[in-house]
Computed example of a mutant assay.
Amino acid sequence: MATPAATKRLTKEYASISRHPPPYIIAHPSESNILEWHYILTGPPETPYEGGQYWGTLIFPPDYPFAPPAIRMHTPSGRFQPSTRLCLSISDFHPKSFNPAWEVSTILNGLLSFMTGEEMTTGSVRASEQERRLFAKRSRWWNSTGGGSKSPSSNTQYHNSKGIGAIKAGDGGAKFRVEWPELDEENEKWMKEKRINLANGMPLARSDARCAPDVAGLRRRPGSSATSVVHEGRVARDVGQSWLSRNKWRILLGTLFTYILVARMLGDGAASGTT
Rank of each mutant, 00 (worst) to 15 (best):
K162C: 12
L86I: 14
L108T: 06
H159C: 01
W141K: 03
S225T: 13
I251K: 00
D214T: 13
R234Y: 13
N155P: 02
W141Q: 05
N33D: 15
F176L: 02
S18V: 12
G117F: 07
T227K: 14
S128F: 12
S105T: 09
W249R: 02
A2S: 09
T84L: 03
D63A: 04
F98S: 01
G267I: 02
W37L: 13
I71P: 09
A6H: 02
D268M: 04
V178F: 01
A2E: 04
E118N: 12
L10E: 07
L204A: 10
L244P: 00
S151D: 09
K189F: 13
D92V: 00
T7A: 15
E193W: 13
P222N: 11
L41Y: 08
Y54I: 01
H231Y: 14
A236I: 07
G233C: 13
S242K: 00
E118W: 14
R195C: 06
R246C: 00
S242F: 07
Y64R: 01
E232T: 10
P4W: 06
E103I: 08
A169C: 05
N109M: 13
V262F: 10
R177I: 01
E129A: 07
S272I: 14
G163F: 03
R246W: 03
R85F: 09
F98I: 05
W243T: 04
W190Y: 15
L204P: 01
R219D: 06
T7N: 10
R264F: 14
L198Y: 14
T47R: 04
D238S: 13
L111C: 06
A263M: 09
A263D: 09
S83C: 07
M115H: 03
A6W: 03
G269N: 08
G223E: 09
A67Y: 00
K194C: 08
T122N: 09
W190L: 13
F66D: 05
F257Y: 12
S228I: 10
T116V: 15
K194I: 00
T84D: 02
V262G: 00
L112V: 08
S97E: 11
W142R: 00
G223T: 10
N99Q: 05
A271F: 03
K12A: 15
